[in-house]
Amino acid sequence: MDFLAEGFRRAWGLLIAGDSEVFGIAAVTLKVAIVATAISCAAGLPLGYFLATRRFWGRRAALTMVNTALAFPTVVVGLLLYGILSRRGPLGGLGWLYTWEAIVAGDVLLALPIAAALSAAAVQSVDPRVRRTAETLGAGPWRTAWTVAREARFALAAVITAAFGQVVAEIGAAMILGGNIRGSTRTLTTAVALYTSQGDFGMALALGLVLIVLALVVNIALQVLQGRGHA
């Protein structure tokens, strides 16, 4: 118990003192998470809408594929992308390996199925009359999609939160693709793993607390949004 209490004391001290390493790692994590969430949602939400509303050959297979991708192990995704981004890989020329861009690429691959599958479910739960009504009042495809999205906005906000949650808490791809380089690709999760293995429990705990605070802030923001959007 002393060990745990000591860890908390040191964590609190680091946070209060504004430790540059803790906040530097948090900044990298936030940058990666925001960019990866934005990209995965920008592609995943329209993909989910398309899967939910269009009838085409192979739609069921596409939905099954997206749902299966939800369960992809992060280390396997990291490994595959490592092969692609490594010097001898097809995208080796980009020089992304061990950069924050590589972590973003891995996180996008992991969050995209979440954004697509959950937004498809969210759109499917919207009353089909919303789409018909928008169309019969003269809306084109984009305006119809926007109207449906407005009706499903709470569910879609939850989709964005889930995608953010996946990205910010992921470790496997970040470790393999980023290399956990100090000041460059060290994220909160990879740093927690590193400092725990080095026995610096206080530092690991401080970083863990920052991670929890990040998740809390995003959820509070969502609740505020839901409160404003009532009715």
């Binding site: 009359r129 919303v130 018909r132 009504t133 019969t136 009706e151």
Partner: peptide
């Protein structure tokens, strides 16, 4: 334009 039997008003 169509008004359905159970019309839908938007948010």
């Amino acid at each position: 334009t169509l008004v359905e039997q159970r019309p839908m008003l938007f948010r």
